[in-house]
């Protein structure tokens, strides 16, 4: 572990990675709102962050993608719920912004240390 690879930074990096993957899938769901037979999918966000907190995120595996259960399907077999997806769009975006500003602060601290607090 190099001096820059603090647990905080590794955790934040993983968080941003998984968040970006989640954005990919939410966008896919929104794009396919009118595709017959399409099923909503999502990453196992909670499970992946648990793994990251236990220090298992470094083994190069990717988070699980699973179909979302409990959504009402339309007669054409499509079960995209626009309310769910628009909430997720906002949520993922704010989470991403939060993580980037924390990351920014982490780097600012290192910067302060390099410049001896001046």
């Amino acid at each position: 572990m190099s001096w820059l690879q603090t647990p905080n930074l590794i955790m934040l990096q993983r968080f941003l990675d998984v968040d970006a993957m989640r954005q990919t899938l939410v966008t896919t769901n929104v794009a396919n709102v009118d595709t017959p037979g399409y099923h909503t999918r999502d990453v196992d966000f909670r499970g992946e962050m648990m793994r990251a907190m236990n220090g298992q995120a470094d083994d190069g595996t990717s988070p699980f993608v699973m179909p979302v259960r409990g959504l009402l399907a339309r007669p054409d077999g499509n079960n995209v719920n626009l309310e769910r997806e628009s909430m997720l769009l906002a949520e993922v975006q704010l989470q991403f912004k939060t993580a980037t500003s924390i990351l920014h602060t982490e780097f600012l601290q290192i910067h302060t240390a390099i410049h001896e607090g001046q």
Partner: peptide
């Protein structure tokens, strides 16, 4: 809806850029 998905993704890209500054 897709246009707002574009806006949201754009926001994320912009947030990622601010790590540099």
């Amino acid at each position: 809806m897709n246009a707002s998905a574009v806006a949201s993704t754009k926001n994320m890209i912009q947030a990622a850029i601010t790590i540099l500054s």
